[in-house]
Amino acid sequence: MLRQYQQAIAQHRQRIYSFAHYSLRAAEDAEDITQEVFIKLWQHLRKVDHEKLGAWLMRVAHNAVIDHVRKHRNSNAHLDTFVDVEQQCGDDESDARLDQKKFQSCLQEEIKSLAEAFRSIIIMRDIQDMSYGEIQECLQMSESQVKVYLHRGRRKLRESEVLRQLFDTVAGRGKPMQAAARETTTNSDEGTRHG
């Protein structure tokens, strides 16, 4: 059983930590959630259907995140939003790279500020590449509900003024980010002329 438990930790730790990290503002909180999830797994290991272990863990993580947000709603959470960026960006980084990182950091912030249902579904679907079926099982929703929440969440991100301004700035400057965006757009819109 112990070996089974350790295998489960090794297999799912990344997914659980990522989910918590992209949902919460402080890295320490994500670590706490990860620990909490695996403690619960140890307590319920015998009862859990091992064929659905991934979905079970994600559901526990999702509930733990909700509880955590409720508990800490009024407290001043330690924000380390840009820590990752600062760690990853050296002095010799180009402006374009910095812009990309800045955009991604802002994006992470915007994702974290979304309402819980939108945020969880965007993280599960777009970042963690989970299938609609898996998300459905984790969140106890129908597939159509998942799709609706996903589309609404994405639309809310597109409505973000910060992201749009950053996009306009970068696009106006003609840095590689804009080129990359143009390139990806062209790839997906074969035969489409852009005005």
Partner: peptide, 8 residues
């Protein structure tokens, strides 16, 4: 598209 690519 850029937003989607960044998230993914």
């Amino acid at each position: 598209h850029m937003l989607h690519e960044s998230i993914v």
